[in-house]
């Protein structure tokens, strides 16, 4: 039994299905990356796992438990974190308050979790009193990930974490992702910077037209000429 299993799901935003028989398997502790052309349903697939997109048919299981079509509030409690692509911080709130909001469903002491986030991203500890909206793109991405990590998730999903970042911050963000993975957290992400993402991916997935087209380890996908020509721009 795999950690996350998505089997043959159909769904979308009402009307036409965007996901048409999509499969996805992620093992515990992996970094899994979904790549593919625009409109392939990459973000939709992640949103379906998180319950933000209605799944009409098929099954999604986390650790053997059925999780399809559950509200985000419950997903968060089940140990699934989700970081949206844009507008992923509370801009007028301080870094510390952003992290506190991340732990909203918890009623126990959140200080150990916050210390862990500060260990992971020392920059956030330095700037905890700063409004998140005033920080650089790379720092905002730390706040966004830190917010999701406050629930100490088993699975963290990132929607295009490097979108809109300068090359310097893109490298930093991939480093951050590796460090998070080093804590034993399984990661699933959608990425436009497909090459860099696949380099750190244990598992890569090519999605097109709402279906899985290829699946392999990241480096193998990069080496696959067909995939490179069709989906990675040669």
């Amino acid at each position: 039994m795999s950690f996350l299993e998505v089997r043959d799901i159909y769904g979308g935003y009402g009307g036409l299905d965007i996901l048409r028989g999509t499969d996805l398997t992620v093992e515990r502790g992996e970094i899994a990356v979904i790549v593919g052309p625009n409109g392939a349903g990459k973000s939709t697939l992640m949103k379906a796992v998180f319950g933000l997109v209605k799944v009409r048919q098929g099954r999604i299981a986390l650790d053997g438990e059925e999780i399809a079509n559950q509200p985000p509030e419950r997903m968060v409690r089940r140990g699934v974190g989700y970081v949206p692509q844009e507008r992923n911080v509370f801009p007028t709130m301080t870094v510390r308050e952003n992290l506190e909001m991340g732990a909203y469903p918890r009623s126990d002491d959140i200080r150990p979790a916050m210390d862990r986030v500060f260990d992971l991203f020392p920059r956030l500890a330095e700037r905890q009193g700063q409004p998140a909206g005033l920080m650089s793109g790379g720092e905002r991405q730390m706040v966004a990930m830190g917010r999701a990590l406050m629930m100490e998730p088993r699975l963290l999903m990132l929607d295009e974490p490097t979108a809109g970042l300068s090359p310097k911050f893109i490298g930093q963000t991939f480093d951050m992702i590796r460090r998070v993975n080093g804590l034993g957290i399984t990661l699933l992400m959608v990425e436009q910077n497909a090459r860099q993402a696949l380099e750190i991916a244990h598992r890569g997935l090519v999605l097109a037209m709402g279906r899985k087209r290829y699946e392999d380890s990241g480096p193998n996908l990069l080496a696959n000429r067909e995939v490179a020509e069709m989906f990675l721009g040669g």
Binding site: F50, L52, P72, E73, M75, V76, R77, Y82, P84, R87, N88, V89, F90, P91, T92, M93, E97, E100, M101, G102, Y104, P105, R147, M151
Partner: peptide, 23 residues
């Protein structure tokens, strides 16, 4: 207070508040 901060969070970014698990 937690509730007061959650109000500011929802006012700041409703979509993010929902995926954060704020009721």
């Amino acid at each position: 207070t937690k509730m007061g901060k959650a109000m500011r969070a929802m006012s700041d970014n409703m979509d993010l508040a929902l995926v954060t698990g704020i009721p």
